[in-house]
Simulated assay, not measured.
Amino acid sequence: MRSAEPGDLQALTALEQRCFASDRLSRRSFRHHLRGRHSALLVAEQGGQLLGYGLLLLLRGTRLARVYSLAVEPQARGQAIGEQLLKQLEEHALSRGRVFMRLEVAVNNAAAIGLYERCGYRRLGLYSDYYQDHQDALRLQKLLRAPREQLPVQEAPWYGQTTHFSCGPAALMMAMAALDASIEPNQTLELELWRESTTIFMTSGLGGTHPFGLALAAARRGLAAAVYLNSEQPLFIDGVRSDDKKQVMMLVHQTFLQQCQQAVLPIHYREFDDSALQQWLQRGSAVLMLISTYRMDGKKAPHWVLVTGLDQHCIYLHDPDVESDWQQPIDCQHLPIARADFDKMSQFGAARLRCAVVLANSAASC
């Protein structure tokens, strides 16, 4: 077992062709992962012959790793090569601070499913029509270190934003659907919610969504809503250079504020911490949080996520943004973020804005 090298490229591509009839990794993909900072490509070799490989993705800014692909030479199967590769991938993930491993496997691949379940992977769900040949995929996960106390979990469907500016509506729809099973997230509703809650402008391009606007949109649809933030200043204008844009955003802020006051929608100007998140989740509320994506993608952009749970080590998020070509929706669901990292991630901008929108079926839970 060793790390793959550029000289393995031809053998890796040939092995991929022999092992898979569809959803194959290309030569270009292998080359990308050979030098990737957030991936690990390991190979099994005997007598100069490549017998298998395992590809691991390390989700940036998280405690999550993903087995992207695992392949063993057909003539070499039955020698525990796949199991050894998997163990090496797990050890590498642990050495890089990851505590969860996730993967997907075709429902008709009994041998692979057996391997993963023997190695401690448990079923999380099912993806329909996942592969190019229209096969369904099982979603599996393993906790790589000793079990810890499990605190509240919000069961919520995951929805991926369909535009680069609609993370707020996507997170809001997930929260609404968690509280009301009759609500089905879709693009029509996503854009409708964006129009109701947009800041119009942002640092560049179209505006994101304002917490007051998101809370008002939820209240119009029958949910109790409250906003918690640590600043009374107009939001998001620090990074905007144009005075005209700032003026528009300040007017939008003031209008939303007046609408909240007219609707008697609570706005709490105070600091809050993880203990508040725990209390909200324990009451059955759904919690949207504003974060900075810098630790995840290197961009200092405001981004809305849904908090789905927490334990003594991590905060778990549904992130509506599938950020890269190598990510899948599985990578964005119940995403584990170390508490210390989340504390920094949830403070946006130079003013360290911290903001949450709390939704519930009754005002008492907000």
Rank of each mutant, 00 (worst) to 15 (best):
S3N: 09
P6M: 04
D8W: 06
A14L: 12
R18C: 05
R18K: 14
D23G: 05
R27Q: 14
H32G: 00
H33R: 06
A40T: 12
V43S: 00
V43D: 01
Q46H: 08
Q49K: 15
Q49A: 15
Q49I: 11
G54K: 06
L55K: 09
L56I: 09
L56S: 07
L59T: 08
R66M: 00
Q79D: 02
E83C: 03
L85Q: 05
E91A: 12
R98H: 13
V99K: 06
A112T: 04
Y116T: 08
Y116I: 10
G120P: 05
R123Q: 15
Y130E: 05
H134S: 13
D136N: 13
A137L: 02
L138H: 14
L140F: 00
L144C: 04
R145G: 07
R145H: 11
R148L: 15
E149I: 09
Q150D: 12
A156S: 13
G160T: 01
T163D: 11
L172C: 07
M173P: 02
P185W: 05
N186A: 08
Q187C: 08
W194E: 01
F201L: 03
G208L: 07
H210Q: 12
H210E: 06
L216T: 12
L216R: 13
A217Q: 03
G222E: 14
V227S: 04
L229T: 11
S231K: 03
R241G: 14
K246E: 05
V248K: 04
M249D: 00
V252N: 03
Q254C: 03
Q258N: 13
Q258C: 08
Q259L: 13
V264K: 14
L265F: 10
P266Q: 02
Q282C: 09
R295P: 00
M296R: 09
D297G: 00
V305Y: 09
V307C: 14
D319L: 04
E323T: 12
K344G: 03
R354T: 12
V357I: 09
S362T: 13
